[in-house]
């Protein structure tokens, strides 16, 4: 009896250990963004997500502002900061900010921002997390974008769960 209990405890410890280890191994690695971008600071200026991510309401893909747009805004701010200087230098050299893309969908998935944002009226934070309070650059997916999560949400909101609705 004692031996059985011992094996059970060892088994439980091993299971938890493997779970923890695999969670660590398969967890998305944080990436390093080229700027110390502060979402909270920008959103404080009463901007909506659409101000910097055009197309999120009317197209499949949401965009990011060009470096020219960043430079334009920062210039009008008239503050001499290292980041402002860096943006101005990039804008002058005609290069874009090399942001590292965080949300990458597989080639075989059809996703439309318009379908989710405008038609289904979902808040951006349902998939992207709460960016309004984010002070550090986005270095990994805040919420996991997985098929399981998509299907759960589709079921909950009575959206189509036909494979063809998302697979292309």
């Amino acid at each position: 009896m004692r031996t059985t209990a011992k094996y059970l405890i060892i088994g439980a410890v091993l299971t938890v250990g493997i779970q923890q280890l695999s969670a660590h191994v398969f967890a998305p690695r944080p990436v390093r963004q080229p700027f110390e971008f502060n979402h909270a600071k920008h959103i404080k200026k009463d901007w909506t997500c659409l101000a910097c991510h055009p197309g999120a309401d009317a197209q499949s893909v949401a965009g990011v502002p060009s470096v020219q747009e960043c430079a334009e805004c920062h210039k009008s701010e008239g503050v001499d900061k290292p980041a402002t200087r860096k943006v101005a230098a990039l804008a002058a050299s005609d290069k874009e900010i090399p942001w590292v893309k965080i949300h990458r969908l597989p080639d075989y998935i059809y996703f439309s921002h318009r379908r989710h944002v405008t038609l289904a009226k979902l808040d951006c934070k349902e998939c992207h997390g709460d960016m309004k309070s984010r002070t550090t650059p986005v270095d990994r997916q805040v919420l996991p974008i997985s098929m399981k999560r998509c299907v759960e949400c589709h079921k909950m909101k009575h959206a189509s769960t036909d494979c063809l609705a998302c697979h292309k």
């Binding site: 597989p106 075989y108 036909d162 494979c163 063809l164 697979h167």
Partner: peptide, 15 residues
């Protein structure tokens, strides 16, 4: 491969 509710015979490639 399956037939959906609208009669389209679909092929889901990753599957």
């Amino acid at each position: 491969t399956y037939k959906n509710d609208e009669g389209i015979v679909a092929q889901i490639y990753p599957r």
